[in-house]
Nucleic acid binder design. Sequence first.
RNA 1: GCACAGGUGGCAGAGUGGUUCAUGCAGCGGUCUGCAAAACCGCGGACGGGGGUUCAAUUCCCUCCCUGUGCUCCA
Length: 469
Amino acid sequence: MQVYDTQTHSIRPFKPLEKGIVRMYVCGPTVYDNAHVGHARSQIAFDIIRRVLEYFGYKVYYVSNYTDIDDKMINRANEEGISVPELAKRIIRSVEDDFRSLGILPPTIRPKATEHIDDMVEIVKGLIDKGYAYVKESGVYFRVQKFENYGKMTNFNLEESQSVEEDGNPLEKEHRADFALMKKSKEGEPYWETPWGRMRPGWHIECSAMSMHYLGETLDIHGGGQDLAFPHHVNEIAQSEAYTGKKFSNYFLHNGFVTINKEKMSKSLKNFFTIKEVLQRFDGDTLRLFMLQAHYRKPLEYSKEGLEEAENQMKRFKTTLEQLVARTQKKGHFKKSKALEKLAEKGVMYENQFAKALANDFNTPEALSVLHSFVKDINNTIRKETENDGTFWVDISLRYKRMLSVLGLFEQTEETSETFSGLMDLLLQIRQQARSEKNWEMADHIRDQLKSLGIVLEDVKGTTVWKRQ
RNA sequence: GCACAGGUGGCAGAGUGGUUCAUGCAGCGGUCUGCAAAACCGCGGACGGGGGUUCAAUUCCCUCCCUGUGCUCCA
């Protein structure tokens, strides 16, 4: 397979350091406020990447963090009159609910910055010893000019950059691009005892510490939103490589933004929708499918219309899934069916195309188009074949389900109790009896009543499928 | 200003040096069905402007225009 690497600005073959194993680290959100659709995109993008890697047989160690200490955390906690840990706890619970609704598999580990202060202190010590960092009254800083190729990944130029000059350099930094590894904590702020006094960590050091702690000195994949490339990832590279003398990550993957009216959705522009707001109107699978319609690196324009379209597609996939499941349970003749054999063969071809699309830098739009073609063939066969025994459908059904699961769709099927499905079977039998007697009133009455209970019936070629709305 | 992305049919959005120029939604015309829902079949329609390379460019090169993003906290 091949992936786009921000470090080389090109697509290149993917080779993990250790055969069959992928070590992946993705920067997670700062937990000071509820997650919005932009966060959802990032989480979904890397969830898909993880699933695709697993689909291709890799063992994936996936670490994604929560930033639970920084300026925004402190400010927000002060505003609300609660402690930083209290705020973190509440928001983490909230975003984890969101992520679960979106079908995001839990990473192997979800560490928090505050759990790894010791690791950070270790790294900062090492950087000071090697001359890459210096201590000032206001904190400990990374000496950017000492690190060769600083900012190479994003073509950042130390001299030409137009970064805003700070008034009189109150932080006493040697160079305006130097960044804080540790910040002196002010009165009333959270702090940790360090060799340099009472400090709290700067933003970038946490990811170096956590990724190194769990995944080692060199990662296979480091990911995050495009907005993290500079300065966050550039700084991570600088401090990590200065510390270890080794390559920090062999691949850097960055997902594109969610936009509104072509502009980036962001907290500062106040043009965002929270995941919770979207989930009031659309379900998690719909939002996920909406995200998959665009390639993960490209901008994705958020709109109600786009979500409605995704909802239609979602229903199409779901209807076929339910029809298929109903077929596999059907008892019929064990006659050999040409059409079904052919469909099974095509299924193999479709899955190959599907895999090929995903192997090419996780091209989900193309994978979806293959899936649509498969669905069309399945539906075509369903309307022709009525009497086959369910066993003939098993292979096709399994393949279809496997493809959906690589995309993380329809994994949160509501549990249906034995009693409930037994009752449904009975009800459908009674209705079928009524239909065969041309008692349409009774048949329609059952269908209407079920609909008002949120259960939809569909009669297709002698098989009635029920589903929750 | 510097850097980086991108400009494809009514909309969303892949892809490719050339043959039937994905896929979905919407539109139009059919089919199936007791009805409903779902589904199926068919149709039209596109590659920002200019120049170049080539037998042939939407696809490669140059240039211009436009949009967005980063250079400050941000997924």
